[in-house]
Each structure stands twice: as C-alpha cells, then as structure tokens.
Design a protein around this nucleic acid. Structure first.
Lengths: 134, 134
DNA sequence: AAACTCTATATGACATGGTCATATAGCAGA
DNA sequence: TCTGCTATATGACCATGTCATATAGAGTTT
C-alpha cells in the first residue's frame, strides 16, 4: 500500500462531514426563474411552491430572498410592494425580458450538466458493472 | 409593470457577470475517485486524463491538488512519493476502502441530481414547448 | 390587553466548490 | 545559461448553500 507517508495528513477533527458526498445542488436559480416565468409572485409564495412541487424541498428562505434581491440587482426581475390582503406586505417579483433570456441560458446549462452526469454514470457503471450484477 | 420601486436595486456596476448562468459544476470529486478506483495516479496525470476524457476539460490544477489533499485528510486516498523516472517527484495517490464507499455514495448522489435536472427540464419544456416548436 | 401563531422579509456567520493568478522546483535540450 | 515541460502548491476571491436568528404585521386565543 502507500504509507511511507509523505509527511502530512493526520485527520484532525475538521474537514468533510456527514452527508456522504457533496451538498445536493438545488438549482434554485433556474427554478425561481421558471416559476416567475408563469406568474409574478412573492418570496414566501415561491418558497411554498418549491416545497409543493417537491423540488428543492427544504429550500432556505435566506438564500431565496437573497437570490431574488440579486436577480433584481441584475435586472432579471423587478419588484413592487403589495399591501393588499391580510398579513405583512409582500414584495412581488415579476420576471423581465432579460430574466427570460437568462432562464433559457440556464436551461442550456442544465442540459449540458445533465450530459456530464450521464457521462460520469456511464463510466461509473462500466467500471462497476460486475459488482452491480450482484 | 413593476417599478413603483420599493426603494432598493439600482444596478450599480457589480453583481452577476459574464458566463450566462451559474458556474459549470464539474463534479471533480467523483471523477477523481473513479479514476483512482482504476489505477493509482499522481495529480498531474489525473489532470491530463480528465482533459483527454473531455470531462472537466479546463480543470483547475489548484483545485485538483487541494481536493486530493483533502481526500487524504479524510482517509479517502493515501499517498506516497514516487521519485523514479525523470522530472520532479510525484505524489502518487491510491484509493482506500473508505474512498471506494465514498465513490459509490457519490454515484447515488449523482443519480439523484440527474433526476432533479430531468424534473427541471420537463417543467421547462412543458412551459416553453410552443416556442421550441418555432 | 397580553400572548401566541402564521405570514413575510431579511441579515450574519460560515462551509464548500470553483476560478484566477502566481510561486516553487526538478530536469532536459537548445 | 536560458527556455520549457513536468509537477506540486498557495493566496485571494466569488458563488452557492446552510444554519441560526431578527424583525414585524395581522389575526386568534386566553
């Protein structure tokens, strides 16, 4: 084996932790843009829809609101306060033309990403076929 | 439209920049583990193979070496110096049992991620079918 | 009226993955 | 000697995501 040890690595209490591998990648951005491409909505509403659709189920409110703000800074959406109805005021977001373009670019990106995943899974299965046949 | 403006957002020179949407997500970690599950190798070698396979084509050396070090800290690989042959010494990495388990966990994760992408693309195409038919 | 709960937006601290620039050193050939 | 390839490595930084927590309007309960 190895272990003439080059001189580092002694697994002290930090580094990688629990969830087997890497954070899930929720693709929050494209989902938000896609939802907004159907109807204007406020943050909390988007949060609920993402939960109902069962994509991005545990979406973080903090991230969501920050993302929407960033979108607005970048001109992908615009917002206005809605004080009608009960409860606190809602900031209602509406997608812009630029936002739509960005969504389409995201879709291209997602397809490319999926191809890369397929490529990995192909190679992975090629390598471990025997084991998978039990 | 919007723009009674709630009071923020004035698109000043910062924020999102060039590459249409989000960074590519190279999935460097599982690729490294998969390559190492076939043969022990040193960093530079892995870098070249990733380029030849045309997955993760422009992989960043800095990230690669750091990732391998982190793997070692976490016990997923172990390393030894190889001073045979010409050129500078190579740190040769070999996958461990724990590393193999981690790779399999990664594969599960990748499959789950792909499902999520499929879900997004389904919804996206459902929404924009008309436009795509030209 | 006070306490509680639901709706709604928001911030701070932090971890991880990735990009870009750059430093270092061994060795080979012009 | 200078250049260039091989090889490993660090620092600064950005983007995405997680976790905890703050704030506040409005309705319901006690």
């Amino acid at each position: 084996m190895c272990d003439g040890d080059g001189g580092h690595a002694r697994s002290g209490g930090h580094g990688r932790c629990c969830p087997p591998p890497g954070r899930s990648r929720s693709f929050l951005q494209p989902w938000l843009l896609l939802l907004l491409s159907r109807d204007a909505a406020h943050g909390y509403e988007l949060l609920e829809r993402l939960g109902q659709l069962d994509v991005v189920p545990g979406a973080d409110p903090g991230l969501l609101y920050r993302t929407l703000r960033q979108f607005e800074e970048d001109g992908l959406v615009c917002s206005a306060w809605d004080t009608d109805g009960s409860g606190p005021a809602r900031r209602v977001y509406r997608i812009t033309d630029e936002g739509l373009e960005y969504l389409h670019a995201w879709a291209v990106n997602v397809r490319r990403t999926r191809q890369r995943l397929d490529r990995f899974l192909d190679e992975y299965e090629k390598r471990f076929r025997e084991e998978e046949k039990k």
